[in-house]
């Protein structure tokens, strides 16, 4: 599905939700639930939990649609952030991470991108992010990937990559700041 082409539809539907328009929520659901379910499933790794969280996500969208400001954020960024946050909350509540296989920095050859959905914001943003990620050290990139896709904490990542917690924190912080400065250029 071309989510970017549907951006206008999603924004318009989000704007109708605060008035109590259930059909508008259903429109948002139809246009975005497959993506958000993919996100929940990726982090939680378990279907029934991902379904529970997906339900919470859209109930949250119903309650918080008035907070969404189309001038300031893309609707997909907003929705994906809700899906990630809810999934991470669920993961943290269950007290054990699902993705704890050791990460070798060399694993990250796969990083150059199996892009499932090029149209998600747009291909240019994806290419730009990837360009900047490619500028990071392999271990930094692997750590960021573990956090973003697997919902890992600093501690999970330190375990998976077999380094002290403080080392992991400094890798990730340094990586994020390099990323920010690269994306600003």
């Amino acid at each position: 599905m071309d989510l970017d082409a549907n951006r206008t539809l999603i924004v318009a539907a989000l704007a109708r939700i605060p008035a109590g328009d259930r059909a508008a929520l259903q429109t948002v659901y139809r246009l975005t639930s497959a993506k958000l379910f993919g996100v929940c499933l990726r982090i939680l790794g378990e279907r029934s939990e991902a379904e529970d969280v997906l339900q919470e996500v859209y109930v949250t969208v119903w309650r918080k649609a008035a907070d969404f400001d189309a001038e300031r954020a893309s609707p997909l960024t907003w929705l994906i952030a809700i899906a990630r946050n809810r999934s991470i909350d669920r993961l943290r509540a269950s007290k054990h991470s699902r993705h704890m296989a050791p990460i070798e920095a060399a694993d990250d050859v796969a990083d150059s991108g199996t892009m499932a959905d090029v149209a998600l914001e747009n291909a240019q943003d994806y290419a730009r992010l990837h360009g900047c990620l490619d500028g990071l050290e392999a271990k930094e990139r692997s750590a960021l990937r573990g956090a973003f896709f697997d919902g890992n904490t600093y501690e999970d990542l330190a375990t998976r990559m077999n380094v002290p917690l403080g080392t992991m924190k400094s890798w990730i912080r340094r990586a994020m700041m390099k990323l920010k400065s690269c994306l600003q250029q």
Partner: peptide, 9 residues
């Protein structure tokens, strides 16, 4: 968020 493009629907 552009990273989420790698997550399949």
């Amino acid at each position: 968020v552009p990273w989420a493009a790698e997550i399949a629907e």
